[in-house]
Write a protein that binds this DNA or RNA. Structure first.
Lengths: 158, 158
DNA sequence: ATCTAGTCAACATCCCGTGTTGATTAGATT
DNA sequence: AATCTAATCAACACGGGATGTTGACTAGAT
């Protein structure tokens, strides 16, 4: 995602109005590396603009995705997470706290070779490749040394 | 996922009863490479057992996931998809028809090097790595040569 | 034959996201 | 400054997916 200022340009060029609500979403999302949900962004925007509607924030986020300025991170079954970082990178997903962390992949040359593998599938058009690491983040890995239930995949934090 | 017969053993060993409903889910899922949703499995089971409840099918699927016999595929925001193939493989996701296709990855040695990359994150415990390819499957790539809307990311099939 | 886990129906509830409507506000442009 | 029109708002309803609840009943496992 470009800077809020650049997005103002972009929106104007596309004939979209530059409203305070949209700008508030721009700055709420700018530089965020935590892959927030729409609800989180809404909460954040309301701190500065208490009357903004949920609908509008969802709308602006979808607009940003449609423009390719923001990516949707699809790594779990929870609510949609948004990623303003559209440059090439991977993700680590903590199986305990569900946090998503960026992983700069210097080894994308290796992944590129995966694309070669897909040439076994004639007619398929590969547009992107993402690598998802799963496991425990440093916080969750150090927390409960004992009392580890096995296969507790039904547990989900609220 | 093991064979329905082996799962019968497994369930008995774990003190779980081997009911016709559970066995029906076993065979409905066995050898399925299409990553079906719970609703699809429910429909399939009802062909042979019309009175089975939705609740029970969801329950059995969760049981299978908890036992590690079935994996959950988290590649989009739609309903949960189940994968009875627990061996090491990757996925291709069609951005048009949302179908998920297995990709045998002979290059997992490359991906292993990604795990090395994560050593930059002290304290993180990587448990699994998956590669997700996105693009158009052969069917969807050949269908509409013209009339391509740009950035139509809001469109979703029912 | 008994004990108890499973199952069932028929609800309700929750979450996430979107559709609707009609009134109002306020960018963009002239 | 006036106009046109997109955008926003409130206050809803709704939809899909999944789970919780209750109480009665069924049927594995021993």
């Amino acid at each position: 995602m470009r800077s809020p200022e650049a997005l103002v340009e972009r929106f104007r060029e596309d004939g979209l109005k530059v409203t305070p609500q949209r700008q508030a979403v721009f700055s709420a999302l700018h530089g965020d590396l935590t892959h927030p949900t729409a609800e989180i962004i809404w909460d954040r925007v309301r701190l500065q603009m208490p009357t903004v509607s949920r609908r509008t924030v969802y709308q602006v986020l979808n607009d940003l995705v449609s423009l390719g300025e923001v990516l949707v991170v699809a790594v779990d079954n929870g609510p949609t997470r948004f990623d303003p970082n559209v440059s090439l990178h991977d993700h680590f997903v903590c199986s305990i706290c569900a946090s998503v962390i960026d992983v700069d992949s210097d080894e994308r040359s290796n992944v590129a070779s995966h694309q070669t593998t897909l040439s076994d599938f004639p007619g398929f058009e590969v547009e992107s490749v993402e690598v998802v690491f799963r496991g425990k983040c440093s916080s969750c890995a150090s927390l409960p040394p004992a009392s580890s239930k096995q296969h507790d995949t039904n547990t989900r934090q609220k």
